[in-house]
Design a binder for these strands. Structure first.
Lengths: 138, 138
DNA sequence: TAGGAAACAAGAACAATTACCAATCATTTC
DNA sequence: GAAATGATTGGTAATTGTTCTTGTTTCCTA
């Protein structure tokens, strides 16, 4: 968006960005669609996809290609890691310091031009853990 | 497969496992299908999906939910990290020592029951790098 | 305020995966 | 060894998540 000045800041884009910024979760395109639709009932799912993609390309949001079937989006662009619940699928940030030095190690150990890395932890979130325990009781 | 004794070791399963073991790449279900079909021309794609899923569940192979649109499968089950080419999408192993200790750190920093983690590097493989340079010349 | 580019909504198309089902095959029981 | 049982298969349909297309609207610029 900053990158190409001829890009217009439409109401749709503004609201998508606002809604994404409101949450600390990492919603899927569909979840963003649901959020935005409360304020802009006539918006199309295609518009949401198109603009999330566009914003990710221009670097103002982050597209997460984490495990699970769907892509997720993140308004926080500075590097950080994620943890995903294997039970409900939700993705949270995790405050582990970013290891920028391992990129260099990776470059040395492979014949790739290394551009970055991502760490994804997998586990069970507290809600699902609790739910599971309650299920065992019944 | 080991888990449920009534599960049969069919020809299809045997060959899927053999073919997956032959390669060091991390084929998608479709690529496995292509490999297996050379020896078992009448196998169905569904059978491949079904059995890869089953083997992943029982722990004899690994299902990689890395970036990109497709899931990939790996006959090597001991923990290791991956590097993915952003240009052609292929996934290689990378010999960076596994940091098993960061799971504990993650558990301390989150309210998840942490079960594991995965690191995925992103970059451009040597083939794509070369191809890109040649393209610049022309 | 007319012309043209950018963006839109709606829905079709698409790719990857999963679900279903009748036919087949292996195993157990008689 | 034949019948019953249950797992597994191939083929195909359905589903899911995403992208593309089409015709329309909106906004800038002259």
């Amino acid at each position: 968006m900053q990158l190409t000045p001829q890009m217009r800041l439409t109401t749709q884009r503004q609201i998508i960005l606002e809604e994404l910024g409101k949450v600390t979760s990492h919603p899927t395109a569909n979840e963003v669609y649901d959020m935005v639709r409360k304020r802009l009932p006539r918006i199309g799912l295609g518009t949401v996809y198109r603009n999330l993609e566009l914003m990710a390309d221009s670097g103002i949001i982050l597209k997460l290609e984490v495990g699970g079937t769907q892509k997720r989006f993140d308004a926080t662009v500075d590097p950080h890691y994620h943890i995903r619940c294997l039970s409900c699928g939700k993705v949270d940030d995790i405050a582990i310091p970013v290891m920028s030095d391992i990129n260099k190690t990776a470059a040395d150990l492979s014949n790739y031009q290394v551009l970055g890395h991502h760490i994804e932890f997998a586990g069970i979130c507290s809600e699902c853990n609790k739910a599971e325990k309650e299920e065992l009781i019944n």
